[in-house]
Design a protein around this nucleic acid. Structure first.
Lengths: 186, 186
DNA sequence: GAAAAAATCACTACATATAGTGATTGCCCA
DNA sequence: TGGGCAATCACTATATGTAGTGATTTTTTC
């Protein structure tokens, strides 16, 4: 018997929200879904926490520090091409079949390797390096800033890209913004 | 006689808002200031438009398409080191003297070369290239995608960096997000 | 105390980006 | 009708990043 998935959908677009709720209840059970137009609405409604949060990237950026439990899975809904592979993305402009398949993969990967996520977490030093990368520093600058050799920076950098599967600076910048590492997040 | 500057301050932090209002009225006149805790509040209060909008980067990202007039000057308040030089930034952790000086420069550059801004706008082709850069494409990829020579891409790229004064990919990514060019903005 | 993980550093070869300079073509518009 | 600008392309030299492989030392964890 599978555990009931508790899902919160935070979307300003009522139609999208209804559609996603319908898809999830039809194809994935047991699920328990609550829909909100914003995180503020969710907070004022109750203090429940959920296993999954489906929301938009820009909403996520604003609320990651305030409303989301640390251990929750957040699924970001992307309406254009998913350029930045930051983890759990869902292309809402795809066909219904694709979306369902996407969701299946999401829930399946969860079941199969629940500990895989830990191996993808960056170490303390790797986080330092990532912050520097996002700030536009060169590897040599980073080496000076952290008082380590250039080779060590390269080594950390290789670990970051292999752990996250993100090779481009723009992708890493997006990842950093999403995870509260960028200087733009106050 | 100087034209009265119409300024809107959109900040959730009431203290910051009050402080900024006080600074602006004390040191820069004639000014006319309205403070709001969010863009929604501003919209429900009235339909006025302003010459300047002072707000936070993440608030700006969310509202740029909906609330801000095209021609408005938007000043982003940065609380840490201003890493991304996207134009009109203000470090709110700086000393009061620094902030005032910053504001003076902002208004002064406005007076001295009101047409300078046009020269800083990216051309159509440059915008295409910027979008590709943010998507993490290499120059060669961009050349293929846009059906132009590698040298042309380099040329556009040099124009972009000189126009914007932003040399790093992370800075350009931030700029693109801020200006609605990034794939993450829905 | 042994195993695992993190942090450190090195070397090679290759790929890609940046800086600087210069040129041609076509278009708009005052 | 000529000046300004956008878009296109070329060449050189230098700087920087990436991939692949391997190693040592310290710290953490069971």
């Amino acid at each position: 018997m599978q555990k009931t998935k508790r899902i919160a959908i935070i979307l300003p677009d009522a139609l999208q929200s209804a559609g996603l709720q319908s898809l999830l209840t039809d194809y994935f059970h047991p699920v328990e879904i609550a829909g909100f137009s914003s995180f503020e609405c969710m907070a004022s409604a109750n203090n429940d926490s959920y296993d999954y949060y489906f929301t938009l990237p820009e909403i996520f950026v604003l609320n990651v520090d305030f409303f989301l439990p640390r251990k929750a899975k957040t699924v970001l809904l992307i309406s254009r091409d998913t350029v930045f592979a930051t983890g759990n993305n869902l292309n809402i402009l795809a066909t219904q079949e694709d979306i369902i398949q996407n969701l299946q993969q999401l829930f399946a990967s969860e079941r199969n390797n629940p500990t895989e996520e830990k191996s993808k977490e960056l170490s303390s030093r790797e986080t330092d390096v990532l912050k520097c990368i996002v700030q536009g520093l060169t590897n040599k600058d980073i080496a000076d800033a952290l008082n380590i050799s250039l080779n060590t920076v390269l080594s950390h950098r290789k670990n970051i890209t292999s752990k996250l599967g993100i090779k481009t600076v723009s992708g890493l910048t997006f990842y950093a913004i999403m995870n509260g590492l960028a200087p733009s997040s106050l």
